[in-house]
C-alpha cells in the first residue's frame, strides 16, 4: 500500500539527515533547544514512523499502529509549549519532514508521474494530519501550564497571618471573584484549624468594590468559620463600601464589623480575655531604675 513507508525504512539515515538540515534553524535561532536533543527527538519520531508494519495505511492516523508515534508527538509538543516555542515553530518541526520525504519519492518515482503524484499526495496528507495533531497537543500543554499558573497565583495572593496566639487575620487585596474567594475561604479556614484560632479578622481595606456576590462569599466564609467554632470580625470597610452594602440590601447584621483593623484586633484580644494597656511613664522609669 504505502511504498514510501518501505523506502523510509530502507534509507532512514539519509532522511534524518535531510530533515535535520531543514529544522536546524529551530535550535540555532532561539537557543531554546540543544541541537543534539533535537536530533535525538527527530530520530525517535522517524523511528516511530519507520517501525510500523510496512503495509500500514498512511491515510488514517487513528490506527493502533500509529499510537506510539502520536504519543511521542504529544509529549514532545506539550514539552515545546513549556520550553517557550511558538505554535508555528512546533508545527514546523513536523512539517519540515515533508521536504526529505518528497525528495525520497522523487528519487524513486521521478519518471512515473502518476505514482509520484499519488505518493506525494498521500504523504502530504499524512504529515498535515500529524502537524494538526501536534498543534492540538501543543495547545493542550499550554492550557495546562496556564491553569497551573492560575492556581499558583491564587495561592500566592491569599496570605493568612497570625496576629496573636489564637488570632489570625486575612488582609484581602484586589478584586474578589468566585474562584479567588473560594481559595481565600479555604486558606482562612485551614489556618483557623492549624493555629487553633478562635478569632479571625477579615480585613477588606484593599478591596476596591464589594458587590452582592462578594458580600455573599464573605458571609459564607464567616458562617463556615462559625460552624467550625471560630468567630470572624470584618474590618476595613470604607465609607463607599458601607454605602454600597446598604444600597444592595446586604444583611451584615449578624456579622461583627469594625472600621479599622486595629479596632478589630483590640476586640479580638478582648474576646480572648486579653487587653492592651498603656504602660505609664512613671512605671517604666521605675522599672528601668530597678533594672539598673
Amino acid at each position: 500500500m504505502s511504498n514510501l513507508l518501505k523506502l523510509i525504512q530502507e534509507s532512514r539515515a539519509s532522511v534524518l539527515q535531510n530533515w535535520m538540515e531543514g529544522i536546524r534553524d529551530l535550535s540555532r535561532r532561539r537557543g531554546l533547544i540543544d541541537e543534539r536533543e533535537l536530533e535525538a527527538q527527530s530520530g525517535d519520531v522517524l523511528s516511530a514512523i519507520a517501525d510500523v508494519p510496512a503495509d500500514t495505511n498512511l491515510s488514517n492516523i487513528d490506527l493502533p499502529a500509529w499510537q506510539t508515534l502520536k504519543e511521542l508527538l504529544g509529549t514532545l509538543s506539550a514539552a515545546r509549549a513549556v520550553q517557550g516555542f511558538s505554535p508555528s515553530e512546533t508545527a514546523l518541526f513536523v512539517l519540515s519532514l515533508k521536504q526529505p520525504l518528497f525528495e525520497l519519492a522523487r528519487k524513486h518515482w521521478g519518471n512515473k508521474a502518476n505514482e509520484l503524484f499519488s505518493e506525494i499526495t498521500l504523504t502530504n496528507d499524512f504529515i498535515d494530519k500529524l502537524a494538526l495533531y501536534t498543534t492540538d497537543s501543543y495547545i493542550h500543554g499550554r492550557d495546562q501550564v496556564i491553569s497551573r499558573q492560575q492556581e499558583e497565583m491564587l495561592e500566592l495572593s491569599t496570605p493568612v497571618v497570625t496576629l496573636w496566639d489564637g488570632i489570625v487575620a486575612l488582609p484581602l487585596i484586589g478584586t474578589l471573584d468566585s474562584s479567588r474567594t473560594q481559595v481565600v475561604m479555604e486558606s482562612l479556614l485551614q489556618a483557623i484549624v492549624q493555629t487553633n484560632s478562635r478569632v479571625a479578622i477579615i480585613d477588606i481595606t484593599g478591596v476596591p468594590t464589594v458587590d452582592t456576590l462578594v458580600a455573599q462569599h464573605l458571609l459564607k466564609t464567616i458562617t463556615a468559620a462559625r460552624l467550625m467554632g471560630a468567630e470572624c470580625i470584618l474590618s476595613g470597610i470604607r465609607p463607599q463600601i458601607a454605602q454600597t452594602i446598604v444600597h444592595l440590601g446586604i444583611n451584615l447584621e449578624d456579622v461583627t464589623t469594625k472600621a479599622k483593623l486595629s479596632d478589630a484586633f483590640r476586640l479580638a484580644l478582648e474576646r480572648s480575655g486579653r487587653a492592651v494597656v498603656r504602660v505609664s511613664k512613671a512605671n517604666t522609669s521605675a522599672h528601668a531604675a530597678k533594672e539598673l
Binding site: E186, L189, K220, A224, L227, M228
Partner: peptide, 10 residues
C-alpha cells in the same frame, strides 16, 4: 468540624 465540611454545609 473540618473546613471542607463547613464550606459544604454553608
Amino acid at each position: 468540624m473540618q473546613p471542607a465540611v463547613a464550606i459544604t454545609l454553608v
